[in-house]
Design a protein around this nucleic acid. Structure first.
Lengths: 148, 148
DNA sequence: TGATATAATAATCAAAGATAGTCAAAGTTA
DNA sequence: TAACTTTGACTATCTTTGATTATTATATCA
């Protein structure tokens, strides 16, 4: 597993009980022996509004990064995702979405896997390259709408 | 015996016990002293849905190619559908298949409904008209393989 | 006390690294 | 000759790294 994913999972685990976590960028980085900017990379690819998170931070003395989870019920969460969803989506981003929906029990594993397969590059191999991410986003949206 | 077949057999052997294997394209290639793209060739000609395989991959650090296998003999009806499935499928025909799969209790209603949505004209509205039925058939095939 | 320097953080951005995919040409075999 | 295989150049995607910049708190100095 790559470091970014390990850090992502570590942060997810910090959320137990609370709907927010506060970390020190440098501490996290030295905990995982990486450069601090890798923490930014993880946050900007995995803890994004589209996935139900919002992030605040402060620099300077006593600086911090605070990651909050938007607490919505399942259908609100799905609506939120649908609304914020781009008209394009890569397979990787879709996987991150689905993973989150599972982690937060919005989708069960079987359904998440089904969606994952439906919008995988393999399923869409015959779609024109320029349209693949658009079609993927559209199928994803239709499926989520149906699940609500 | 040609290299592709040797690589194919090697991958088959990796499946002992598990229903999936994960390989690194470059490692495999250097193990067999071939160019990496030969691995793609082997996978795209030998590990195809019609033969009961399903492939996922990721690029970049810690990238991988994951090949999953299903036992097509477990469900003769599905096997038949997948193997005989035309490379094109209209929404109507797809609906008929789905109905039958429900009648035979291969799929429960919820899953069948999801698949129906995934391959509906609405989901595929951005796909070129000329390719719509091909894409539909392909998604359907991948889904059926995955769901067994 | 107010201004300024210093230390302590975090953000940004681009380059480098690590993978995998695509496509077409060349070679081989049936 | 048609189908299959091998090869390699080029492309796409994801991750890691580091240099530079921005911001904030605190200490110090006039």
């Amino acid at each position: 597993m790559n470091l970014s994913t390990i850090i992502e999972e570590y942060i997810h685990e910090l959320f137990t009980d609370n709907d927010f976590v506060e970390v020190k960028r440098n501490d996290l980085a030295s905990h995982f022996s990486c450069v601090p900017s890798q923490i930014n990379y993880v946050i900007s690819t995995r803890f994004i509004p589209e996935l139900g998170f919002f992030v605040e931070s402060k620099r300077g003395g006593n600086g911090y990064i605070k990651i909050s989870k938007i607490d919505l019920n399942e259908s609100d969460y799905l609506k939120e995702i649908i609304q914020k969803m781009d008209s394009k989506m890569s397979q990787n981003v879709a996987d991150i979405y689905l993973n989150n929906l599972m982690i937060y029990n919005v989708l069960d594993e079987k359904i998440a896997k089904l969606i994952k397969v439906a919008i995988s590059d393999k399923s869409l191999e015959n779609v024109d390259k320029s349209k693949k991410d658009i079609v993927r986003a559209n199928i994803f949206k239709c499926l989520l709408l149906n699940i609500i």
